[in-house]
Structure formats: C-alpha cells, structure tokens
Amino acid sequence: MKTNLYNYILELADNCLIAGQRLGELCGHGPSLETDIACTNISLDLFGQTRSYFQYAADIKGEGATEDSIAFLRYEQEYKNVLLVEQPNRDFAFTMARQYLYDVFHLLLLEKLQFSQDITLSAIAKKSIKEASYHVRFTGDWIKRLGDGTEESHEKMQAAINDLWTYTNELFEVTEDAKIMVAEGIGVDVSTLKEAYYEKVSALLEEATLTIPESKYFQKGGKSGIHTEHMGYLLADMQYMQRAYPNMKW
C-alpha cells in the first residue's frame, strides 16, 4: 500500500469531514432559514469532497476498506484533521469564524492541488475549487456583517477570532507524509501558503473593523492525531451507529 499517499489523503479529507460534521450539527437551528440553507450547502459540499477522497483512499488501502470504514471506524488518534475544524459551534460568530479561517486556507490549498501529479487528487481539487470559492465568499461576508454590524456582533466576532486564532498556524505545518508527497509532485507544500493566507485574512478582518490578534502562541497536534477535548464527543456522535451495530449495511 502507498502509505504516504494514503495518509496524505486522510490529512486532506479529515478536515472536510470534521468541518462538515460541525456544520451539520446546526441544520435546523440557524439564525434564519437562509443561513440554515447556506450552512447545509457548505456541509454537503464538504461531505461530497470527503467521499471522493475516501473512496480513493479505500482503493489504495484495499483489504475491504470502504469510504465508511475510513470515515467511521478509526480511533481518535488516527484522525488527521487540524484542531481548528473540530472546535464546537459556540455561537454563530464562532461558527462563521471557524469556517472562514478554514475556507481561506482550503481554497489556497485547492488552487495548488489542482496541479498535482496525481490525477485523482487533481480532479477532486478542480471540482472543489468552485465550491470552496463560494464557501469563503459566504463566510467572509458574514465576518464583515458581524464585525461591522452592531456593537454586540462586533464583540462576539472579535472574541471568536481571538479564540480561534491560536489554531490557524497548524494549517501550515508540513507532516512527514506531506513532505514525501510534495517531493513526488503530488502534495502541496502548505508552508508556502502561509503568507498569502495571513494577508487575505488580515485584509478582510480590517475591512470588518476587527483587530488582528497579535498572539504568537499557537496550538497544534491535530495533524499528528493529538486532538482537543472536543474531538471525542464529536466522534462518539458520528461513529455511534457503526460502533453500536458493527458489520451491517445501511
């Protein structure tokens, strides 16, 4: 099995899976019908991408692996998503901030991944770029609305950005698997996206009258499977059926 490629795909896909799962929690509970529909759309796009990645990963893995065994039957430390996307939906500002901080990265990543030497990854990236462009536009608009809306919304959005900022740096960590994939022309060197990322995010935060956090203290660990306390609950929920009723078709 091409272990490095397999691990690299999980690194890409787990972010989509966990971000999609978090947005899915909100379905039916949004601040308006329109935002509800839009958040569900984003969640659907992310799960769609997850499935493409996992179907490819299952082929590589063989041994009867399926998109579902990969999605639902791993232990917590085998999930490679960044800590950012697993953070809970504390309020609408927090949800939009979390999603935006991921979306900017996601689009930059896909724009590079489309040139991957791996034709499957390249095809997934090409298809996903359109979706991610919409995501970043939608969440970016909400950062502006809430940042430059009322005093209350400004405070809430600033608090969300301040809290989530600590998780942004991990997006640019290059794992050992990714290094090998970059060398083979398959993977994207995410460290090269950092400058563009902070430039884009800072410009939007400024437009939204928000203060760019100055903290130099960052958290990481997700990519190597060391997650925050929130992750176990998310997985307990997500894996419930597969764990309670193993080896069945649904």
Partner: peptide
Amino acid sequence: GNWITRAPSLRRKVALLAKVQDEA
C-alpha cells in the same frame, strides 16, 4: 435533523442533509 450527526454512512448522511435542506 436529530440524526444528521449520527447517520450510519456517508451516503445516508449526505442524503439526509439534502432532505432536511429541501424542507428548509
């Protein structure tokens, strides 16, 4: 919506999300 986070497969999760979205 109560079952979106617990849907037993990715295919079912996507179908359920889409269904609830249709209702919205």
